[in-house]
Write a protein that binds this DNA or RNA. Structure first.
Lengths: 150, 150
DNA sequence: GTAGATGCAAATCTTTTGCTCGCCC
DNA sequence: GGGCGAGCAAAAGATTTGCATCTAC
């Protein structure tokens, strides 16, 4: 929200000490311009619009490196593919089961609760993945759609 | 917890109106005997010990049918494969990042909180998937392992 | 009897990898 | 210069599917 420069991701990469190639810059830019949760294929298409010489292998390798550096995070939408987003402060995803659209939300209460539970179980919370599935109030849920999304 | 008969799953299948073949009965039995979260391959092995003529394709097809009937649920452990468990009352998974072991827990507070959040966002909660990752208190977390698991 | 289920093998889809060449630091 | 990164294509791993055959209802 508070980010004003267009390629904040590039800075993060440099700060993380990553060797920056033109391809990585391109991918960083494509990520910066993605306000949704693209999978590798979609990100590949977007990166290609910036630099058409990028290969899909580089997309995967770079995403892996970015992820390991804590710069991006995988999101499981339930379609069998890995989707990605720039790592930000902790937030959750609500998937609309009627159309697959993702709505984000935050809840410190939730994070605190999880941390508390983990603690009681003798664990230190590292991270978590939460996807909430729901349908808009009033909409009639068709069992089939609900399942397809899952 | 309250289930005493050995093949409760079979009953559920029949109640769900599924056509029961010997293979489906075998898979139902294998699921009944699985107190962990097997992936398709492991369930295939277990089913094979009961009936060695079952094929992996049937495992996948049957799991899909069971899932669509709401009898089993997928669990995402973060290893790229789909794991399954018999559908039960809502509960969550805590994954030990040191060894991949899954610990289950329940929290009505959590469910209530999610339901409340969804409601505020104008959605009716259908279901949710939560996996919490953590390491045992006192264990030294190696960044590599943490990442490997995710 | 017939719609639906199974087995087998081939196909598909996503992601990873080996290898050679090129480029960042 | 040396090591890491990139491209290409082939491999790998998980899951799905076409088709002929079989079976539950």
């Amino acid at each position: 929200m508070a980010v004003t420069m267009e390629n904040a991701m590039l800075k993060k990469c440099i700060d993380a000490g990553l060797r920056m190639t033109s391809q990585r810059e391109t991918i960083a830019m494509a990520l910066d311009q993605s306000y949704d949760h693209p999978d590798a294929e979609l990100l590949y298409k977007r990166a290609n619009e910036i630099d058409s010489t990028i290969s899909i292998a580089t997309i995967y390798r770079t995403l892996g490196i970015f992820e390991r550096a804590g710069l991006v995070q995988k999101v499981d939408v339930g379609d069998g593919k890995s989707h990605y987003e720039i790592a930000r402060d902790q937030h959750e995803h609500l998937v609309d089961t009627q159309n697959g659209q993702i709505h984000e939300f935050k809840s410190e209460e939730l994070t605190a609760l999880l941390s508390e539970i983990a603690d009681k179980m003798g664990f230190e919370l590292t991270s978590h993945k939460l996807e909430v599935y729901g349908k808009k109030h009033g909409d009639v849920a068709c069992r089939c759609i609900q399942i397809k999304v899952y």
